[in-house]
Structures are given as structure tokens and as C-alpha cells.
Simulated assay, not measured.
Amino acid sequence: MPRKPRIHFPGAVYHVILRGNDGQDTFFDEADRSRFFFLLQGGTERFRHSIHAFCLMSNHIHLAVQVKEIPLSRIMQNLGFRYTQYFNRRYKKTGHLFQGRYKALLIDADNYLLELMRYIHLNPTRAGMVTRPESYPWSSHRAYLGREKLPWLTTDWILGQFANAERYQSFIEDGVKEGYRKEFHVGSFEGRALGDDRFIEEALFQAEEPARENLSLDALIESVCRAYGLSKAELASRSRVRQISEARAMAALFVRETEMLMMVDLGREIKQDVSSLSQAARRLEMRIESDSHLEKRFREIQSRISNPQLSSLTPSGSLVSRN
């Protein structure tokens, strides 16, 4: 059964859980966690999302993330990919570090974000690692108490719900005896969202989910071909010309980041090996990190996909300039 797409709209808040593959540890020392902090900060600067709370455990991570226009899938794929690169390089390992698809639950922030933040901050106490949450250095709780500064952490909304720091701390302490809360893991709607019927209806309306599901593989391939000035036959050829190879990698990257599309279907459509397409997508993502021209081309194709009117424009053969 195909997986359902995540509900995305600007302003959406998610509880994200990223677990180590087969339960393996993802952090071994302070340097590992500091590197993850660095990548979290870099992500907020690049993708303009907000992190309201976090907790880095030994073999999994909790985040409360609020997105803008860029969907959570791109944010998390970038974060997981870059940290895995660091981890494998440092420990001379290969392969996946994180367990399959990360868990992300859309949250009704008005009714659940405060309790979610408390639930995240109390992870170390529930696990018996510390007796008081402020004793654990790898969550956002200490920053909320003013004991450390994390410029990339968004604290204004949550702290604005309390008259002072003492009220905030009392709220956290009131939940110390609280156990596992299933609703923060499975939600109330198809395992995708936590909120009442009205919130779900509004979220689906804002996400325009039916329109998003209409994105077809053919439309994506056409957009990529137009951006590169190629025909579909050229994309499906055995040519290793750089422009054609890059176009294939770009198509694969979009498929990987579009939850209703599958790499196996792309491979069948353009007569390419699925493993090769996946590897090409990963290499291209690395190049996009440091190549502004490639990122502009990525944005151009993204714009064509989200604005069907652009499909009638003749590609200029060069990158689109944005003011």
C-alpha cells in the first residue's frame, strides 16, 4: 500500500523523530552532538524553518519544527544526509545511519505545542538518564531557562505563554511523572496529524492535498527536460554527456523529495538503473550545497512544478535569474 504524503503548508508544525538504524547509537561524544547542532543551525539559515524544541538522545532525536515554504522532507533529507556523511567519515563506516523514513506528525500548535515541548524536554528523565531535565545538556530546556544561548532556536512563542521563567519551569516540572504519550507518536488522523476535526480539515485545505497528489511523473520529467533544453528521448538515452547526466540526477532528486513519486517508476520511465539514479541524486544534492547556479536551476524546476502556467514558456537554455 503506498504511503500517504505528509501534510505540508507554510506555518505547519511537526513532531519529528529520527532514529538510528536498527537502534544503533547516532552520537558517541560531545563532538558528534556539536556537529549536529552546527547542521541544525545551518538548516535554519538555509531553509528558513524554526526549531521550537529538540532533544538529542543516544540513538534517536526529537525535534519540534515549524516550516515555511520549503517542505519538511527537504529539510530532513538534507540534515540526515549531511550528518550521515560526517558520521561515516569520522568512524570509517558506510551505509545508512538512520532508520528508514523519519517519523513526522503534524501538530495543532495552539493546543499541543506547549505539551509537546515539555514531552521532548523530559525525554532524558523518562529514560532515567538524569533526575532533572536541566541536568541534560543536549536538549533545548537549558536555553529556555536562559542558561545557554542558541541563536538558531526559536523560543519567543513558547516563552510568551508564561509570565516569567519560574512559571515555565513549573510547567516543565508538573510533567516529570508523565509517562509515554502515544498521541505524540501516532496522532489522531491516519498517523499524520494530531488535532481535532476542525484542525485536520483546515490543514488539509491549506495543504491543498488533492492538487499536490496530481503531480505526475510525466509532468516532473517534462519540467526537468525544459529546464535543461532536452527531449525525453535524450534523458532516457545511454549518453553520459554532463548536461544529460545532471538532468537525470535532478529528476531523481525531485522524485526522492516528492513523497507521492517513486524512484523505481522514474527508472522504468527513463530506462535507468534505480541504484544509479539514487546515487546521482545524492551527489547532486552535495553539489547544490556549494553551487548557487545549481540551486537556482533546482528552484526554477520547483517553480515550474508548482506553477503549471510556466510549462508553456520556452526555456532560455540558461539559468533563470531571480531578483
Score class of each variant (00 low, 15 high):
Met1Gln: 10
Lys4Asn: 14
His8Trp: 14
Pro10Ser: 02
Ala12Val: 06
Ile17Phe: 01
Asn21Pro: 14
Gly23Trp: 01
Arg35Gln: 11
Arg35Phe: 04
Phe37Gln: 00
Leu39Thr: 11
Leu39Cys: 14
Gly43Ala: 03
Ser50Met: 11
Ala53Lys: 07
Cys55His: 04
Ser58Ala: 12
Asn59Ile: 10
Val65Ser: 01
Val67Asn: 03
Pro71Tyr: 04
Ser73Met: 03
Arg74Trp: 04
Gly80Trp: 00
Tyr86Ala: 03
Tyr86Ile: 02
Gly100Asn: 04
Ala104Phe: 02
Leu105Lys: 08
Ile107Tyr: 08
Asp108Trp: 01
Asp110Leu: 10
Leu113Lys: 10
Met117Ser: 15
Asn123Ala: 11
Thr131Ile: 06
Tyr136Ser: 00
Trp138Tyr: 03
Ala143Asn: 09
Glu148Arg: 07
Pro151Thr: 00
Thr154Asn: 02
Asn164Gly: 07
Tyr168Asn: 04
Gln169Leu: 09
Phe171Tyr: 11
Phe171Asn: 12
Tyr180Arg: 11
Lys182Asn: 14
Glu183Arg: 03
Phe184Trp: 01
Gly187Pro: 12
Phe189Ile: 00
Phe189Trp: 06
Gly191Leu: 03
Arg192Trp: 13
Gln206Gly: 12
Ala207Arg: 01
Glu209Leu: 13
Ala219Glu: 06
Cys225Asp: 04
Ala227Asp: 09
Ser231Arg: 15
Ser231Ala: 12
Glu234Val: 15
Glu234Arg: 09
Glu234Asp: 10
Leu235Gly: 04
Val241Trp: 01
Ser245Gly: 12
Glu246Leu: 06
Ala247Leu: 02
Ala251Ser: 10
Phe254Gln: 08
Glu259Val: 05
Met260Phe: 08
Met260Val: 13
Ser276Pro: 09
Ser278Thr: 14
Ser278Val: 13
Ser278Gln: 06
Ala280Cys: 08
Ile288Cys: 15
Arg297Val: 05
Phe298Thr: 05
Ser303Lys: 15
Ser303Asn: 15
Pro308Ser: 09
Pro308Gln: 10
Leu310Ala: 06
Ser311His: 13
Leu313Met: 11
Pro315Gly: 07
Leu319Met: 05
